[in-house]
Design a protein around this nucleic acid. Structure first.
Length: 156
DNA sequence: GCCAACGTTGGC
DNA sequence: GCCAACGTTGGC
């Protein structure tokens, strides 16, 4: 089982938006590395963090699950769509997406500012300088560590 | 194939 | 709003 991180701007699509739907196609990714992860590596049942970017408090707000493996992102074929890409052909699609489903929202998010101070997460891709991938793998150790932060009892 | 120019991402 | 980092584009 692999673990992932999905970035989204909460003004556009937040974890509460995901909670409100049965499942959601993760469309609009137009980066080859991210495309490869979705097309080749994500498997049904994999879990991912839901990360809020470009907002006052960037961080991980909850967990989602892959419910459909990579298939062509049809919004690339739609001239009227925001992420239309004339180079992507139906016979040979350039862009792929997966469907994801809400699993849970953390009581308190794990903020980027907090993660930066955690030695255990020093190697995490998300925290590397200049990283701009909107979809990326997360080391299972890091995934479990972060998840455990959210379920531990408050310190006395 | 190189690389400058440009556009985008995303934290601050 | 600023700007660093990065990806893409296009001229040569």
């Amino acid at each position: 089982m692999n673990y992932w991180l999905f970035k989204s701007e909460p003004d556009v699509f937040s974890i509460d938006d995901l909670k409100a739907v049965a499942s959601e196609p993760w469309d609009g990714v137009r980066n080859y590395q991210a495309r490869n992860f979705m097309r080749d590596d994500m498997k049904k049942g994999d879990l991912g963090f839901f990360y809020h970017s470009n907002t006052k408090e960037p961080g991980i707000y909850g967990i989602l699950k892959i419910v459909r493996e990579g298939y062509p992102d049809h919004t690339a074929f739609d001239k009227t769509a925001k992420y239309f890409d004339p180079k992507s052909k139906k016979e040979k699609p350039t862009w792929y997406m997966v469907d994801v489903k809400f699993v849970k929202k953390f009581k308190k998010p794990v903020l980027l500012s907090e993660m930066k101070d955690m030695p255990a997460l020093a190697e995490m891709k998300l925290l590397q300088k200049g990283n701009r991938l909107s979809v990326m793998p997360v080391d299972p150790k890091n995934f479990k560590y972060i998840e455990s932060l959210t379920s531990s009892l408050p310190k006395t």
